[in-house]
Design a protein around this nucleic acid. Sequence first.
RNA 1: GGGUCGGUGGGUGAGUGGCUAAUACCACCAGACUGUAAAUCUGGCGCCCGGAAGGGCUACGCAGGUUCGAAUCCUGCCCGGCCCA
Length: 429
Amino acid sequence: MSTATGKLIPGLLADFESRGLVHAVSDPDLGRRLDTEPITVYCGFDPTADSLHAGHLIPLLTLARFQRHGHIPIVVMGGGTGMIGDPSGKSAERNLLDLATLESNLEAERPQFARILDFDRPGNPAIMVNNHDWLSDLDLIGFLRDVGKHLPMSIMLSRESVRRRLESDAGLSFTEFTYQALQAYDFYHLYQHHNCRLQVGGSDQYGNILTGVDYIRRMTGADDRATALVYPLLTTASGEKMGQTARGAIWLDPARTSPFEWYQYWFNADDADVIAFLRTLTLLELEEIAAIEARAQADPAARIGQRALAAELTRMIHGPEAAEAAERDSRQAFTASADPAALSGDVPSAEVTHADLDEGLSLTRILVKTGLAASNGEAKRLVRQGGVSIDGRRVEPTKRTIDKSVFAGSDAILLAAGPRRRAILRVVN
RNA sequence: GGGUCGGUGGGUGAGUGGCUAAUACCACCAGACUGUAAAUCUGGCGCCCGGAAGGGCUACGCAGGUUCGAAUCCUGCCCGGCCCA
């Protein structure tokens, strides 16, 4: 983390391996190369939303690890390829995004990258480029002659992502098929203009990246090789995509996923996942993680791993103050004698007036208003099933309304829905 | 262009005129047990109104039509698979 500028720290590939972050490497010599010279490495991101989400943490951190070891990371925003859509890992043809949307998404994500990568680091600053800048210059005939000519059809067709889609009912359009050619061209462009020698990505990208590696070799004939390094696609112990919930992705943007919710997501990680998450999703040293693991095993009920994971990730994405607040809120909101007035604004909340209270409030509406239930029906169900409590006391399944008596003189109450969701209801005037 | 098969709720995928807000599995939610974990068991899982009983609305690619009644039949269109050209 605190490395002298430009100084190379050896052992990077071994560190990746120890963390379980190496699925495949195309050059067996990569470890040595990384230890002897600074290498420029890139990873592509498709700006499909106006925020990054938890699924982007691994690629983001991968680049950060390179930078901290003295290498130069390039973030390639897929402004051009985002208009095409990568078939890898997708079961259906993707919606194409228009340029204006991509541009605004890209701008929104830029500061999120800057939280993890240092764009001003002396010696090896991170670089961000948009592949629209060069892909949009390509003309069809030039592309077919200069790029397409060097891409063997047999290899491109044999790619797992392509084959699977061709065999599926969804099919594959020429446009999507072309994606790997554009990605190959990206790599070549960066090889030429930024001296980029390595591309990293998820294992589903391996074929695409190798297409680029081959293309560069054909074009340059150089033995200064372009290389592919891919990490395994992480799933949770129950086989789910990491960072996805039934209600959708969890986001880095605090307006989409509050720091409290972000903290809670990681706090709720399964025991079976938590150590792997610490290794792959944080920059904590392996020895430190091993120490956490030992303590966690000695006392699983203390959820030491989850605490460390949630704290570390919240600090990384939202900063130390937000992390401390999330920790405090979580401790407070999940004890029986919680004081709702002491909770920060990051805990979901809603407000009612004294006049509302005098009339009597529909419990159903309050649950919806605080976001604890998505619809009135869901809220009623929740109450009927005994899943709601107020200030630590179970609400009777037959209860329909609440009045000022539940506030007992206070101006806020803590609502709980099930074991792991909390919200505050405040009275205001 | 011709033929043929298909498009169902978050996912997979049944259903081929009323018994179907729609089988099953997964995911998800709640309860019990726990540690804000896992496993297990129980219940639930479109939207609105209602304390409830119940009622209303919307939904099976899109638009029309037949019928007392359609996810199911007919016509046209859109999208996709496969075969032929």
